[in-house]
Design a protein around this nucleic acid. Structure first.
Lengths: 125, 125
DNA sequence: CACTTATTACTAATTACTTAGTATTAAACC
DNA sequence: GGTTTAATACTAAGTAATTAGTAATAAGTG
């Protein structure tokens, strides 16, 4: 009965990210990518990928003796879902409040602030 | 070794929200607010509030035989933290991508989109 | 003063995510 | 064909969050 604010854990997100950017990937390939940042056991990555497949975030096909994984869900879908959830649970239904929290955050660089402004300006009404 | 995308769970966030809006609150008062939406045991709310106090999100003072809780951390701080985390873990450091995911989300009403646009337009460069 | 009531403290069960070890299976090599 | 190698399957332990029951404590009430 865990109720997380998010549908996925951090490692799951990390793995998903690598699969997205690789297109198709074996456990070993994903592990290599993760190893660029931190150490992790092969079996750990395998377990996470199996779990993600169980949850339908990944699909796979057998090639020789190993499985080749690919994404079953697109990044946009996961991101939308996550942002929706956050707006609901943390910002009580106000997307504006989220943006406010974002742009008021002093960690944003001027560059980033400008990018965001440009993006919105170019958005059609 | 749990690694959540967020520092708080859903119920914890819910309780925190009520304490913020009430200013000061007893367990019973927070529980009443939650009961407006769903059923929950008195002891459950108590446990969550005790945990939040342990994590320094709430502070309390004794009044008679009960504790009166108040927020030790402001909503903005929690929200900033959460948004930062999300940008880091899900949007790989790009706040722009978050905004993009947000405004492209078809669940947003035109009204909300407009509000966001106005807010950003009024932002200083 | 005994009894009801309100409150907190303690305990525990459940679920989810993370992490990784051990076992098994199957291919590949000598 | 037996042995090494690489992969997956199975198992399990740890931590966090949720949920709530039971025990203990203390205050007020007749």
């Amino acid at each position: 009965m865990k109720k997380s604010l998010t549908p996925l854990g951090e490692t799951e997100m990390e793995v998903l990210h690598h699969v997205w950017s690789l297109g198709e990937a074996s456990v070993a390939e994903v592990r290599e990518k993760i190893l660029e940042n931190r150490k992790v056991a092969y079996t750990t990555v395998m377990t996470v990928m199996k779990n993600l497949a169980d949850k339908k975030y990944l699909k796979y096909r057998k090639e020789g003796l190993s499985y080749i994984y690919s994404a079953a869900i697109q990044p946009e879908d996961v991101r939308y879902n996550l942002v929706d959830r956050l707006i609901d649970k943390v910002f009580h239904g106000s997307p504006k409040d989220l943006v406010q929290a974002l742009v008021q955050n002093e960690k944003l660089t001027d560059e980033e602030r400008k990018e965001i402004k440009n993006m919105i300006d170019n958005m059609e009404d």
